[in-house]
Design a protein around this nucleic acid. Sequence first.
DNA 1: ATAATAAAAGATAAAACTATCTTTAATTTA
DNA 2: TAAATTAAAGATAGTTTTATCTTTTATTAT
Lengths: 144, 144
Amino acid sequence: MFSKSCEYAIKAMIFVAQKSKDDNRVGIKAIAKGTDAPEHFMAKIMQDLSRRKLIHSVKGPNGGFYMDKADLKTSIASIVKAIDGEVIYTDCVLGLKVCSEKNPCPVHFEFKEIKKNLIKMIENNTIADFNDKLDSGKFFLKNK
Amino acid sequence: MFSKSCEYAIKAMIFVAQKSKDDNRVGIKAIAKGTDAPEHFMAKIMQDLSRRKLIHSVKGPNGGFYMDKADLKTSIASIVKAIDGEVIYTDCVLGLKVCSEKNPCPVHFEFKEIKKNLIKMIENNTIADFNDKLDSGKFFLKNK
DNA sequence: ATAATAAAAGATAAAACTATCTTTAATTTA
DNA sequence: TAAATTAAAGATAGTTTTATCTTTTATTAT
Ligand code: FES
Ligand code: FES
């Protein structure tokens, strides 16, 4: 569904949001551990998210990644777009050069509805929403 | 959504079904051309489908790939399973080791519905269904 | 200033996926 | 039987994705 990088990115955003209450910052090691991701790979992804302003960071002692109030309003869709691009929005399920109603592949209309629901879901759910959920202790970012 | 191999496989199955009416056979070149896929790569995929009995083949002059009545009842889901495996059925969207209701990731229940509809769709649609559609001339397997 | 910390950046490597080319084996026709 | 045809199989190569390691830069505290 999503690339590995994108999976990690979503988990990292949720994790950092969770941990960065009252101006706390989280280091890359803690993020990697808390999301069961390889540290150096996750570091790359965090750089990406940081460059794209989905998350903030400070270097040096007591530095790390954090999110402000505005960042918490980020939708899953924004993360997916930042990491995987617009494929879900634009690409044909069967790989036709362009996906269109005028030149549809055989499965176009069957997938139209499914894609619509998928997009609606990732656009309507923000990091803050998942944050609240995690607080309940009923949801997990890893399960080794 | 699906791997490139899987996209080609689905297109190939629809293409061969279309062309293999009244005991005709289709060569790998025609399949590659008709689905806008690289010939040698498609040959590998056809070997796979053939080994898994989703399609049949005969070598030699007038040989090629074909489908019988039973083959036409193959669902999209069967093709996806043959090429990409059970990922859509079993894997966690965020990459947790196991996807379960007891240890769900934050997006588990949001995606549950979407995955259910996706699976229902690919299980309920057979090659024969798409075959009929293509006959209408309103659907395409390539659009260069 | 200096030392310690932590992210950013760069370089490299391993694995998976996609693609191509060549050889072999089976089948048909003549 | 010989030649032609076509899928099957094997070997190789390119690309992208995933992952790791090293160096640099910014920041803080002493
Ligand atoms: S043309 Fe294939 S999904 Fe739209
Ligand atoms: S646990 Fe993540 S989708 Fe089920």
